[in-house]
């Protein structure tokens, strides 16, 4: 049984034009101790999926359907009070911008010890001792002194380490990371990512990493889920996704990664068009308007998830035709100038 299993999750926004499903039937599994990447372009619902798990949703959003199974128990329909027992203790979350994820008026130590007290019931000396251990765990030099620092005295990388330390207070089994490196410098990004990877191995913790950077996923994760328009459209191991993608959108994403040793003086391939308007109901495949392989049957009904290999599932009716070389977005071939 998977540690965390999301089944047909629908998260709905209220809007003046009526409700629309920003997360539209996400199905995803995270096993104990594995690192899973959740990838997609802006607005595809990847952050919202993550926030739905701990139900820290923006105003007007609510879970409208589906299940979120944590160790077999559905936590999607727990009351907020009962969910608090899972938040931070079993499932923890780190946010995108570390500088604003810390309260500016309390010291690092105060915030760490507050979390230790809330989630573990540690107080006084024991809490202080544990706080120092946690800071050491995330490789912060001179942790005793850092306890007294205020967030504004920390760099972005240090702040993110503190945020991670706070998230680890109660030794959660799942860590949700919402673009943890987006707000950081490139060199710091690599350090934070390595830290997350090390912690995941050391603490046997499952990590669900949301990002729009495929390269980052390839380096760190064992499995990947690709999202488009509120659905997971392809899911598999890193090798499966990068070596034999079976969804035209995945192919397009991989093709559009700039290569250091790629051809010069050619345009970077891009997927034409733009993501669909989520406020309208989507019939058939959401990607069909932009897909070079789309035919009429792609625009009808709902596309199910096909099992194409062990652990490899794809939501594309034409998956048999798709390979890295069969889907041509046509840009790389004729754009030389």
């Amino acid at each position: 049984m998977a540690l965390l299993a999301i089944r047909d999750l629908v998260t709905q926004f209220k809007s003046s034009a009526g409700p629309f499903n920003a997360v539209n039937g996400v199905t995803l599994e995270v096993e104990r101790g594995e690192m899973v990447g959740l990838v997609g372009e802006s607005g595809c619902g990847k952050s919202l999926t993550l926030r739905s798990i701990v139900r820290v949703l923006p105003r007007g959003a609510r879970i409208a359907g589906g299940q979120i199974l944590y160790e077999g128990n559905d936590i999607a329909h727990l009351s907020s009070g009962n969910l608090t027992r899972f938040r931070g203790r079993e499932i923890s979350m780190i946010l995108q911008d570390p500088m604003s994820a810390l309260n500016p008026v309390y010291t690092v130590g105060a915030q760490l010890m507050e979390t230790l007290r809330e989630t573990r019931g540690l107080r006084g000396k024991a809490a202080r001792q544990r706080a120092i251990e946690l800071l050491r765990l995330v490789n912060i030099p001179d942790p005793e002194r850092r306890l007294e620092s205020y967030p504004h005295q920390l760099s972005g990388g240090l702040s993110q380490r503190v945020v991670i330390a706070i998230a680890l207070c109660a030794q959660p089994k799942v860590l949700l990371a919402d673009e943890p490196t987006t707000a950081l410098d490139v060199t710091v990004q690599a350090q934070i990512l390595k830290l997350l990877k090390d912690l995941q191995k050391q603490l046997q913790m499952a990590v669900l990493l949301v990002t729009h950077d495929l390269g980052l996923v390839a380096q760190t994760c064992s499995r990947v889920a690709i999202m488009y328009a509120g659905r997971v459209i392809e899911e598999g191991t890193v090798e499966q996704i990068f070596e034999s993608p079976r969804h035209p959108y995945t192919v397009g994403l991989i093709e559009s990664i700039p290569l250091v040793d790629g051809p010069l003086h050619t345009r970077l391939p891009a997927i034409p068009g733009s993501p669909p308007n989520m406020a309208k109901p989507i019939i058939g495949c959401a990607f069909a308007p932009r897909c070079p392989l789309a035919s009429n049957e792609c625009r009808e009904g709902t596309i199910p998830l096909y099992d194409v290999a062990p652990q490899h599932r794809v939501a594309c009716g034409k998956h048999a035709l798709v390979s890295k070389h069969s889907v041509i977005y046509g840009v790389r071939a004729n754009a030389a100038s």
Binding site: T84, R87, R89, S92, M93, I94, L102, T115, I166
Partner: peptide
């Protein structure tokens, strides 16, 4: 939001 995700009361 972070403190809610961390399970504060």
């Amino acid at each position: 939001q972070a403190s809610r995700a961390l399970g504060y009361t």
